[in-house]
Design a binder for these strands. Structure first.
Lengths: 208, 208
DNA sequence: GGAAGAGTATATCGGTTCGATATAGCGGTG
DNA sequence: CACCGCTATATCGAACCGATATACTCTTCC
C-alpha cells in the first residue's frame, strides 16, 4: 500500500510524482524503495478516486536544486495563481509538471489506511504505518503496535511448531528469520512501553 | 522468484501444487508464504517452458529413472496422500491431481536461478537461494554470500547518508530497519567464515 | 557558443505476485 | 445422511516492479 505513503507525504506539502519518489527513497529508503512504475499509476488511481487533485503546475518557482514545489501557505490563492499563470502563459511550464494536493476525502482515506483499514500483514505496510504514526491518536497508536506484536508472536509460534528436517543452510535461514522476528517483538515491546508511559503521564499529570 | 522454490522442491521429489504450497509454508513459512494464486500460474509457466512435466493422476509410478514419487523414509503427508489416493481410487486420481516432475531443462534453470541468474535483490530471493545452497558448488556458495554482503553494506551506507529530520516514529522505524541490516551482515559474516573454513580444510586435509 | 551529459519529470508495458473467490471430490462426525 | 472441513485446481482483478520511452532543463567542457 503505497497509497498510504503518498498520502502521508501529501499531508505535509503538495508534491509531484518525482519528488514523492525522492522523498521516499531519501527518508525511508530501506523501507519503501518505490519505482515510478508504481508511483504514477498510484497517483492516477488516487486522483480518480478523489483522494488527491492535480494542478498542472508550470510554476515559475525558484529553480534551485532543492526546489520544493510547495506553494505559499495561502493555499487557495496559490492554486488560483497557478491556474491563471498557466492560462496566460501557455506553452512553457516545463512539460506539464503535475503537482498533487490532498483532499478531504484523501485525508479520510489516509486516516483509515493508517489505522489498519485495508489491513495487509506485511512488514512494509506496518513500517509505513508506524512511520506516520504521529498522525494517529495515542490509543490508536498503541492498538497498532499491539496488533502487530500479537501477529508476530503468532507467526513465531507457528514457525516453531515445524522446525524439521532441514539441512544446514535452510535451517540457518529459517533460524535467522525467526531471530529477526523475536527481535522485532522486543523492539515493539519497548515502543509499547513507551506509549503506555506517555499515556499514563499524560493522564496523571495534565499540567507540567 | 518462486520458480526457484518450486524447482528446488521438485528436485527432491515429484509433487503437486497443493503439496508444494504446504511444504513451503511448513518448512519456509517465514520466508515464503506463497498463495495458490502464485503457485498455479507458476506451474503452468514452468510447464510451458519445459522445465517441468505434469503427469495426470496418482498411479503409474517410476517409468523414468530414479524419480519415484514416494521414498519410504519420509513419513511426509505428500507420501501419504499419494498412497491413499492410489489405494482408494486406482485409476482416476481424485479430480485430476497433477503431479509435476522436474526435467533436465528444469534442473538447468534451477542451477541458473540459484547461482543468481535473474538477479532480484530482495531479501526473499536471497533467502530462498541460500535455503537451497546445498545444491551449489562451494565457491558459488561463497560468491552468493559475498555478493549479498556487499549489497547490504552498500545499502546501509546509503541509508546512513540521509538520516534526517524525521519524527520519533519514523526515526525509530528507520533505525530498527538499519539495525536489522547490520545484523544480517554479521550473520553473513559468520556464514562466510564457515564457508571459508570448509574450503580451507577441504583443501589442506583432503582425507579425514 | 554549442555539443554532450546529467538531472528532472511523466508515462506505459509486460510480467509476477497476492488475496479473494469458485468449484468439486473426499472423509469423518453428530 | 447431511453437513463440515480438508484436499485440490483454477481464475480474476489489482498492485507492484523493472525496463523502457520521451522530452525538457541545466551545467560543463571544449
Amino acid at each position: 500500500m503505497l497509497d498510504l505513503a503518498i498520502l502521508g507525504l501529501l499531508e505535509e506539502r503538495d508534491l509531484h510524482g518525482y519528488e514523492i519518489r525522492r522523498q521516499l527513497r531519501e527518508h525511508l529508503g530501506l523501507l519503501a524503495n518505490v519505482s515510478f512504475g508504481s508511483i504514477y499509476p498510484a497517483l492516477t488511481r488516487l486522483e480518480k478516486s478523489g483522494a488527491v487533485v492535480a494542478t498542472e503546475g508550470g510554476g515559475t518557482e525558484a529553480p534551485g536544486p532543492a526546489a520544493a514545489p510547495a506553494p505559499p501557505t495561502g493555499s487557495l490563492s496559490g492554486e488560483l495563481a497557478v491556474l491563471r499563470s498557466r492560462r496566460h502563459s501557455p506553452a512553457r511550464a516545463r512539460r506539464g509538471k503535475k503537482v498533487y494536493r490532498i483532499t478531504e476525502t484523501g485525508r479520510q482515506l489516509f486516516a483509515e489506511l493508517l489505522a489498519g483499514g485495508g489491513a495487509t500483514d506485511d512488514a512494509r505496510s506496518f513500517g509505513l504505518r508506524l512511520a506516520f504514526a504521529r498522525h494517529l491518536a495515542p490509543q490508536a497508536r498503541l492498538a497498532l503496535l499491539e496488533r502487530r506484536r500479537a501477529l508476530l508472536v503468532q507467526r513465531l509460534g507457528e514457525a516453531e511448531e515445524a522446525r524439521a528436517d532441514l539441512d544446514v543452510y535452510a535451517r540457518s535461514v529459517v533460524q535467522h528469520t525467526a531471530d529477526g522476528i523475536a527481535r522485532d517483538i522486543s523492539w515493539l515491546d519497548t515502543l509499547i512501553a513507551s506509549e503506555r508511559d506517555d499515556l499514563a503521564t499524560a493522564g496523571t499529570e495534565p499540567v507540567t
